[in-house]
Design a protein around this nucleic acid. Sequence first.
DNA 1: GTCTATAGGGCGATAGAC
DNA 2: GTCTATCGCCCTATAGAC
Lengths: 200, 200
Amino acid sequence: MSATVITRLDDVGRWTPDAQGRLRQAALSLYRERGFEQTTVADIAERAGVTERTFFRHFADKREVLFAGSEQLQEAVVAAILAAPADASPFAAAAAGVAAAGRAIQENDVDDFPRQRAEVIAATPSLQERELLKLSRLATAAAAALRERGVQEPAASVAAETALGAFRVAFERWVAERDGGTLEARIAETLAAAAALLRG
Amino acid sequence: MSATVITRLDDVGRWTPDAQGRLRQAALSLYRERGFEQTTVADIAERAGVTERTFFRHFADKREVLFAGSEQLQEAVVAAILAAPADASPFAAAAAGVAAAGRAIQENDVDDFPRQRAEVIAATPSLQERELLKLSRLATAAAAALRERGVQEPAASVAAETALGAFRVAFERWVAERDGGTLEARIAETLAAAAALLRG
DNA sequence: GTCTATAGGGCGATAGAC
DNA sequence: GTCTATCGCCCTATAGAC
C-alpha cells in the first residue's frame, strides 16, 4: 500500500520518483474513466510518465496494478491469528484475523482508494477473478496460521474459509452502501451472523 | 456437460459433429501433456480438427473450455436449496445445495474427467482464478435461492459462502487424496466440521 | 529498450439443414 | 428463403523473450 518515500534529495534524479505509485493512481483513474478493457497499458504508462516496459517491471500484468499491498494485508491477518488468545476457538481466531484486515484497510484509506478500487473490480469480471485468487491465498495462509495454533484439518481450512466468506460479504455490503457505517462494523456484524447461523 | 448427440445420420455432413466436445477433450489432454501456458489455441483446434476461429466461437477464451457445464451445476444447487424442507435452517438448506453439487459431479464422471480437470486447475493460477469466479457466482445464486426461501441478509449470503467454503475444502481434499473416499463423503465430513466449528 | 508470439475480437464469406 | 456452424483474414494489445 505505502508509496516509496523520498528520504534524500539525491533520490530525485533523472526520473521523477515513485513510478509505482503514479502507475497505480493512473491505472485506477483510467479504469474508472473508461473501464478496464478500454484502457491499454500504454495509456497508463503515458499518464504516469513512464514507458510501457516500466509498467511491466513493476507489475506482472494489467490486473496486478490494483493489488499492490495484498502481501501486507496477508501478513496482518496471519499476525492477528497468531496473536489471538490461546483459549480462543478456531473460528474466533480466524475472526480476529479478518477483523485485523478490516482495520488495516481503513488505516491505509487515502482519497477513498479502497472503495474506488472495489467499484472498478465489481464492474470487471477479470479483476474479480484476481481478487478472488488473492482472497483464496489469504484463506490458505489463514488456515496455515490456525494449524500453527494447533487446530487440525479440516477444521483449520473450514474456519479460514468461513471467516473469509464473512469478510467478503461484509466488504461487498460496505462498498454498496456508502453510508452504512465503517468496514470494521460491517465485518463484526457479518461475523456475528455467521456465528448465529449454525446455532440456529 | 452433455455432448451434442447425433440423432440422425444426416447430421454428419460437411463437418464432423460435436466440435465442442472434441475441443474440450483436446484441451484437457493437451493441458495435461504440456501444461496450460505451453498450449496454444491453435494446438487445441488442430487436435480437434477445426480452426482456431471455431474454438473462440464455442468458448469465450482459452480457460472457459474447462468450465462448460457450470451452469447446469448451478441449476442443480439452486434446485436442491429450493427443494429443501421448509423447516430446514439456512445453513442446512445451503448444505443440501452443495451436497447436490457433489452428486451432480460424480454422476457426470466419465473417464475420471473431474479429477483430471481439477489437477490441471490446481497447477495453473489463471485457471484457479476462473474456478473461483464460478464458485463465487454459484455462491451468489445460492444466496438468492436462500432469500427466496425467506432468509434475510446477511444470513443468506453468509450461509451460502460458508457452505461453498466447505465445498471448496472438501473438493480440494478429494482431489489430493486419490483413495480418500467419495466426493459426497468428503463434502458431508467438511460440512459437519463447519457446523461443529461455531458450536465449539 | 526492441522484437515477437499469442490471445482474442471484428467482419464477411461459405455451406449445409430446414 | 432463414438459421446456424464453419472458415479466413485482418487487426490490436498483452506479456514474455531477447
